[in-house]
Design a protein around this nucleic acid. Sequence first.
DNA 1: CGCCTACTTGAATTCCTTCAACGAATGTGG
DNA 2: CCACATTCGTTGAAGGAATTCAAGTAGGCG
Lengths: 269, 269
Amino acid sequence: MTPSHCASQAQVNVWRSVGDVASFHPSSVVGKQDRRAVNGCTACEVRETSFCGALQKDELGALARIHKRSELQADASLFYEGDPADSIATVTSGLVRLVKLLADGRRQVLRFVAPGEYFGFNISETFGYSAESVIPSIVCQFPISGLERICGIYPDLQWRLFVLARQELDRQQEHIVLLGRNSIPERLAAFLLHWASIENGADASRRPLMLPMRRADVADYLGTTVETVARTLTHFRRQQLISLPSCNMVVFRDFDRLCALAQGENGTC
Amino acid sequence: MTPSHCASQAQVNVWRSVGDVASFHPSSVVGKQDRRAVNGCTACEVRETSFCGALQKDELGALARIHKRSELQADASLFYEGDPADSIATVTSGLVRLVKLLADGRRQVLRFVAPGEYFGFNISETFGYSAESVIPSIVCQFPISGLERICGIYPDLQWRLFVLARQELDRQQEHIVLLGRNSIPERLAAFLLHWASIENGADASRRPLMLPMRRADVADYLGTTVETVARTLTHFRRQQLISLPSCNMVVFRDFDRLCALAQGENGTC
DNA sequence: CGCCTACTTGAATTCCTTCAACGAATGTGG
DNA sequence: CCACATTCGTTGAAGGAATTCAAGTAGGCG
């Protein structure tokens, strides 16, 4: 993953769509620097982890025909809160945050969507949140109407969608417990560990962790403030739990103790 | 709904199952005081609001054959955290709470499940929470394996299940925002209003609201403590927002102002 | 080089929790 | 029938964790 810069992330709400619902076809050739588009879904880098992964050739073709691919620059919006919720999306590269804004400006980050993960399963007619790229990202959208039609033809595609929605329920449930019953240090520890396992998998404890999002994003994800996030990170550093070579890089110095903290042992540090 | 008593709700973890997966059939006759069982699903009181609602006769029969009905006395558990998550359930009468326990005893109530609503969509192999009745309740469970089989035969049943899971995603999302970004008075106001609309629908503002759950349940749902819930209710009462004829009954005195509070206007009261 | 943004740190304040006591309602056993 | 134990709910006082307000630092970019 490309490390982002601490500063200078201008708010730009522009997105470019590459191929749309009508014209896109897996075999159509797009710009040379974008190998993914050349072979369409077949060469998609998250194909193994996606619901498309287990598809037969004809199913994949049907999906490819309805999908819409968007390239987002950093801090661009794919859609806004209130837009018609007519499609399910997956991130193929980059990182997307789902953000709910309250009337008085308070902000809740509902989720960071990593490559291979899905979002937009909500049932409401309009999205209850906006989807914004944290870093330059590529997103693939599938219209619900098209999915429903294809699901009629390929029943187990539908079951896979059901499974994805249910995975999302588990994720949200963890988030609820985190916000409802964990102290801020616990929340931050859990966040770092969760994020590390997504980024680095089994190597999470050894590899340095890049945090592409801003402090404000972390704070709004954890239900707290930038200041508290900064303070708690400093606290972790002083306790030798982590070190911070730069503000976007976390090196784990005592992974086990951080795990214990995330599990709720000595929640005040 | 039967009002519960303030005190003396002994913890009883016993449940009776009426009819099981193998032997139950819609036409089988059970005790005379239980009219619902006599006609099976056809006479189910939540049939209109359930996913069974739109079913054809044969679909309903297929569902009836795999379903398992349980009667729970107050504070009984349908299942515990860690039990194999092999079925989706619906509450047909009463009220069920889904509870997640942390290692050190902290408790998070994930949801109160009202009649006609579903739970257990989670994808994990084991439940991440226990399901307990708040008041005497009847719950109907459908094994996932059986559902998957039936869905192969009736594809739009599967789409309806998908829709239910997605509704649940929306609900949880609101809960996340509530816990992450709302003050305690805001959370409690939102809780009362949400609950009132479930119980009394359009009449919510005029009808008194019965709260069958304990203060501790409300507190653990809202991520706070019993004392704070009691204090905040007193606060609402002093501000003429509500009155409390008994500890389980809320009468709305200024519904609009309570709505405004829940929306975030003047969150500290 | 200076501006802008993000991040960090400090001090004061606020909100909420914790600890403790008390009242009300229910159920039990003598 | 009444004393007693138990549980739930309410209220008060003290303490603490996190927020708010404010200032200062660091790094990137024009």
